[in-house]
């Protein structure tokens, strides 16, 4: 490894350079289409005003966040979704993926496609269906009545409405995350499982001792993206409950969108709230990377 090349670079340096060349197009594109607008958004977050007449006002948009009860409410809602939904969904996806990776299983393709389908289903129909399923005289309440229980006014109570959102999220995104696990599982040699089976390991042991550790890079990927996705949750809040009852299911992104495009526009404030989301996600992502990204 120590032989120097013609240009006076070590092989290692040369490879390092090749690496940089490989990632340059992607990095440049991201800088141009993401970081540049992000910097603009940050500058915008320091401005206030009506319509297009904006002027610099320092950090007043940020101090304003502290006084905003709606923001606090949406922050609470969003974190509530995060804490409940992400772990349940990822564990479920992992279980499904390892079941569907079983060589002896029949109709695998059919099962996989069925379980994946929810995330391909257009938001319009999915929102309509969930609203009608959980309507006051909808399917779910009919079933509850059938079991002799009292029907629940799902969308009339803050906690049950949040529950509906979480159920909907899990329903929609479990199959999506399963895709990553399925593809990650292909990189684990089947012989490892064979060996474990011969050694008499139970399926549960195999799952925790082999599947989970070897899938760690994928688990990290899905954890970061799901965290990010949940903190930026928008569609469900808007289409399923429209934030109601009151604002008890509204998410931060939904509030930001309203501030920009539904209410009288206040872009500076919306940008400031977005920067806060960015910081929150970044902190969580760095923590997750620290825990999960050891080589």
């Amino acid at each position: 490894m120590s032989g120097s090349s013609k240009k006076g670079l070590t092989l290692q340096e040369k490879h390092g350079l090749t690496g940089w060349v490989f990632l340059t197009p992607a990095v440049l594109l991201i800088c141009w289409t993401s970081f540049y607008p992000m910097i603009q958004a940050f500058i915008l977050s320091l401005k206030t005003g009506m319509g297009v007449n904006l002027s610099f006002s320092g950090f007043s948009n940020y101090t304003r966040i502290l006084k905003d009860p709606t923001f606090k409410q949406t922050l609470f809602n969003t974190f509530f979704y995060l804490i409940i939904q992400v772990p349940v969904m990822l564990v479920l996806a992992l279980i499904l993926a390892s079941l569907l990776n079983n060589k002896q299983l029949r109709f695998k393709g059919l099962f996989r496609t069925c379980i994946f389908l929810p995330c391909a289903t257009s938001l319009v129909s999915y929102a309509m269906i969930f609203r009608s399923l959980f309507a006051n005289d909808g399917f779910v309440n009919t079933v509850l009545r059938g079991f002799g229980m009292n029907p629940i006014m799902w969308f009339a109570n803050a906690w049950t409405a949040r529950a509906v959102i979480i159920i909907a999220l899990i329903w929609r995104w479990t199959g999506y995350n399963m895709v990553f696990y399925l593809s990650g599982l292909q990189n684990i040699e089947y012989s490892v499982y064979e060996a474990a089976r011969i050694d008499g390991a139970s399926p549960l042991q195999t799952f925790f001792k082999i599947t989970v550790p070897l899938l760690k890079p994928t688990i990290l990927l899905t954890t970061i993206t799901s965290t990010n996705g949940t903190l930026q949750l928008f569609d469900e809040s808007l289409n399923l409950t429209n934030g109601g009852p009151g604002k008890s299911t509204m998410t931060m992104s939904h509030y930001i969108y309203n501030t920009s495009f539904v209410q009288s526009p206040n872009f500076g404030y919306a940008a400031a709230m977005s920067i806060i989301i960015l910081i929150l996600v970044a902190i969580l992502a760095i923590l997750q990377m620290k825990v999960g990204d050891e080589r």
Binding site: M153, A156, N157, A158, G244, P245, G246, K247
Partner: peptide
């Protein structure tokens, strides 16, 4: 007003 109404009626 919508939020107020829903808090009053539903909660």
């Amino acid at each position: 007003v919508g939020v107020a109404l829903s808090n009053i009626c539903q909660q």
